[in-house]
Computed example of a mutant assay.
Amino acid sequence: MLEILIDNRNGKVWDITSIVPSLTYKTKRIGSASSLSLTLIKGSLFQSDEFTVNSGDVIRVMKDGTGVFYGYVFEIDSGMDESVSITAYDQIRYLLANDSYVFKNNTASEIVKKIADDFELRLGTISDTGYKIPSMAEKDKKLLDIICKALDLTLINEGGNFFLYDNFGKLSLRNIKEMKLDIVVGDWSLMDDYGYKRSIDSDTYNHIKVFQDNKKTGKRDIHVGQDSANIAKWGRLQLYQQADEKMNEAQIKTLVDQLLTLKNREQRTLSIDAIGDLRVRAGCYIPVVIQELDISQYFLVEDCTHKFDADTHTMSLELRVI
């Protein structure tokens, strides 16, 4: 059973479960805060005259005693009728602020901790990402973009695939390998419908060109890696990016090889509409079985939307092969 509470942060906490006819909870793996959108009915028979909802109020959603969402009211939309629409976000919303940072020989974990400390955000489990990033100088950038860049650099340098999320009011950083669920979705299990897409139109590259400005010679050094077979099939799909000035030739060659391994493949995405299970959120691995597509494997949840309407709970998943 769901429980929905609003904390006015002045000592008053309201249980609004009975006056919320619909609720939508969304999570994204990269670049966005989790959001909660709900509609409540004002002026109900048993509602206290003191009941209010204000910007910055805390909203907590629990399911059978387990925390689902902990966030803050950012938008209240009301009119002459009895319905009030509320939108809340978790702590990651505060990472959309801009600032400037310089890091040297720090791990992504240390970068997350530093930024969270500076902005007084609560921390939960922060896994050690291991790889020390030689340098990052970020001027007037979104805090979340800075963190995502650090995580991308960690992945490219074989430090592992980590993701940042808010775990019921605490920022957490976990390796996606730690987030496997044993909930099977697919034929005869939760799934109502699916869509399957294969694409080389986004984030697929078979020709990698990494450059570095050589201060000694005054020239630009170019390092190239490619898959000739895939170029013959798809045409040349080029990724062009700059290497850190402190990287040596061997390190740049390793970077080119790693980028080619990561990017030189057809992107496969799967969307599923299913009966809802709140254990599923963006960043989790779930096993999917669809006989028609000859699929029986784990997929990474990129986006997850849970919808509650009366007694119905459904979820929509955007999944990706890793």
Rank of each mutant, 00 (worst) to 15 (best):
I295E: 11
P287D: 09
N248Y: 09
T305G: 00
S271Q: 12
L262K: 09
I290G: 11
K233D: 12
L300W: 08
G218C: 13
K215F: 01
Y298K: 10
D244Y: 02
L260W: 03
K215G: 03
I200Y: 00
F308D: 07
F308H: 09
L270Q: 05
A274K: 04
V280Q: 07
L239C: 03
D227Y: 08
Y240T: 01
N214H: 05
S202M: 12
I208V: 12
N214S: 11
T217W: 01
N264D: 14
K219I: 14
K216I: 15
I231R: 04
I272E: 02
E245Y: 01
K233S: 07
K215M: 02
Y205F: 13
Q258M: 06
V210T: 07
K197Q: 15
D257H: 02
D221F: 04
Y285S: 07
K215N: 03
R281P: 03
Q226P: 02
Q226S: 11
V210I: 15
C284N: 12
A243C: 07
Y285N: 09
K307A: 10
A310W: 06
G225F: 08
D273L: 14
S202N: 13
Y298Q: 07
G225Y: 03
R220Y: 07
G218H: 14
Q297I: 00
K246G: 05
I231E: 04
N264C: 11
S271W: 04
L259T: 12
I286V: 15
S296M: 10
L270I: 03
I286S: 02
T204D: 04
C284R: 06
Q241H: 05
D311E: 04
T204S: 13
S228K: 15
A229G: 10
Y240N: 02
A282L: 07
R220I: 08
K216E: 15
V224T: 14
D201P: 01
N264S: 08
K219W: 03
K263L: 08
Y298R: 09
P287L: 08
I295A: 10
G235F: 06
S199Y: 00
A232Q: 12
S271T: 02
D227F: 06
D311Q: 06
D203C: 04
D201V: 00
N214D: 15
C304Y: 02
V301L: 01
T269E: 15
C304H: 04
G235R: 10
N264L: 07
L300Q: 06
I252R: 02
L293C: 10
D203F: 00
H306K: 05
A282Q: 05
E245R: 01
T204Q: 07
S202L: 11
G225E: 04
K209N: 09
F308Y: 11
F299Q: 12
I295M: 12
L259S: 06
R279L: 10
S199E: 13
L255G: 01
D203E: 15
D303Q: 08
S228I: 15
Q267A: 14
R198Q: 10
Q297V: 00
K197L: 13
D311C: 01
D244V: 11
K197F: 13
T305P: 00
R281Q: 12
A250H: 14
Q226Y: 14
I208P: 01
I272L: 13
T269L: 15
V301P: 03
Q238S: 08
E266W: 06
H207V: 03
Y240H: 06
D227G: 09
I231G: 01
K253C: 01
R198H: 04
E266G: 07
Q267K: 14
C304M: 10
V280C: 09
F299W: 14
N248P: 09
